[in-house]
Design a protein around this nucleic acid. Structure first.
Lengths: 286, 286
DNA sequence: AATGGGATAGAACGAACGTTCCATTTTCCC
DNA sequence: GGGAAAATGGAACGTTCGTTCTATCCCATT
């Protein structure tokens, strides 16, 4: 038994509990450590879920939850759960203004805080715009084109490069064949020479446009490889080479443009392509 | 029975429910009016309590609560309770409105549209979280450490790689000396071997953690190179090697986690570092 | 390789839950 | 003031909950 002792050293609020869990995390047995990690990462789930549902979610047995609670001096899982509920209760009053006040007070007192806030705000603005600026039918067409492709060529340089590198990672996980153009210098052209009209390309470029991206897109287009592109202006050199293109203007803070909307777009596109492929394959093999 | 009707006009969120209750309050029978008043005055109690405890508290019978819920089109008390719980879960301001705006755009009509909307919503949620989960003082300390460094080593693999590759790009533009660890295999260790305690490192890793990132961070820490890290759990292997670390849980759509918050964080950090350096240099040469 | 102690999985249990049902009371219209 | 309809209280139901208990597993130590 883990020392019943006095009830005084049982954590009475969430912060205290968190501290104790972190302090003892290293010495915890495997399953209990698993619960510890889950509980701090998904506190809301603990607050609302039932022991059974949480156990499933955290991939342990319900009894493990009870043992976990008892390890920290609680009578059972239920009393531990109260701590997580209290945490949500106490944060309620006037959240709209309160959060706003908290943000501006907390962060802007320190110099770097305003920079931080600025970027979060810029990202929000970008995302607010994205829904209206992206035409859903064009999106559908883009998914169509790329889902049909044998290999997808990803073209992005400089500031756009993180976007294509995320897509490369995700495509790899999703088993979608791709070629990441623009990693090593020199071999790009050889890589592109292999593209046929059975393939397709996705190009990203924001002003000031990398001339390489534009010329690579043009090269592919001239060889009948369908190109889908993401850019920030109708005047982008990418637009003329593309079968479908999207105009997406990112908001900026102090001149540094956000990437959040582009990133969300890229994720959606990536998953939509994989999704469509799976559906098509299902239909074919049935 | 109080009109089974279609399920479409059953309130789906707290605001809608509140409106409906207030609208029909006057015509409600005595006991139901009592419940109506109680539920709007003590929404937290409804969220967490049991039917029995709430009934006692509101001085009615448990069955009255069920009848009350059914009067407003819910199947039973439990489904009404979900609305009150959701309210606490989604404590972020403006979130509901944003989602509503998203829902009403024409994306939802097309198949890929829901994927698109899902990722935008996930990005919003991530950003809403970031302001509260990042401690401004820790951020300030992180900026301090990295601004003082001679060379900044960027460590990130796989899903986190786009983040460090953005920072690499931005550092280049801002003339901040950096080394991007993890690009080419093999030379990483040689690169890290050159790091001294005059330098610093920024590591990013989300679960499932890339073991390389963790071991590289550990290596640097053991050689007194200060490490700042961005991760998603207090249990991350990065945490123990880091002087300052940030916990940032990205929201996900269909299991694909957003990168928007991490990206915004990375941008803010990057710019704040450059900003701080410029200020320090100004002060020195003056 | 054997042993001992702690940790775990899973079945079993009693308590508490939300809901339903029906007798009783209240309300409102004729 | 009588009667029907609506509203209410409270008991009973089946379900699901958190917890307990025990056989088994794992791992460290010898």
């Amino acid at each position: 038994m883990p020392t019943p002792e006095t009830t005084t050293d049982v954590p009475q609020d969430f912060e205290a509990l968190k501290a104790v869990i972190l302090e003892r995390k290293a010495q915890l047995p495997k399953r209990l450590k698993q619960v510890a990690a889950y509980s701090l990462d998904n506190p809301d789930e603990i607050a609302f879920g039932t022991a059974a549902s949480i156990a499933t979610s955290a991939d342990v047995q319900p009894s493990t939850l009870v043992r976990f609670a008892q390890h920290f001096g609680f009578e059972g899982f239920s009393s531990l759960q109260q701590i997580f509920r209290a945490r949500l209760r106490e944060r309620t009053p006037g959240y709209e203004e309160r959060l706003k006040a908290l943000r501006s007070n907390d962060h802007s007192k320190l110099e770097s805080g305003s920079i931080f806030n600025g970027f979060v705000a810029a990202a929000h603005r970008s995302l607010d715009n994205i829904a209206t600026s992206v035409d859903p039918q064009a999106f559908e067409r883009a998914v169509d084109i790329l889902a049909k492709a044998d290999t997808i060529y990803l073209i992005a340089k400089r500031r756009s490069y993180p976007i294509s590198s995320y897509m490369a990672y995700a495509f790899g996980k999703l088993k979608v064949k791709y070629q990441h153009v623009g990693t090593a210098a020199g071999i790009d052209d050889d890589m592109l020479a292999m593209a046929t009209k059975q393939d397709a390309a996705f190009a990203v470029s924001f002003s000031p446009y990398a001339s390489e991206s534009a010329s690579q897109a043009r090269l592919l287009a001239s060889r009948k490889v369908p190109v889908v592109s993401l850019t920030d202006s109708a005047f982008s050199p990418l637009a003329e080479s593309s079968k479908v293109w999207f105009e997406l203007v990112e908001a900026d803070h102090a001149g540094f443009r956000s990437l959040s909307a582009s990133m969300a777009f890229a994720m959606a596109l990536t998953v939509a392509i994989a999704e469509k492929r799976r559906r098509t394959e299902d239909a074919a093999t049935r």
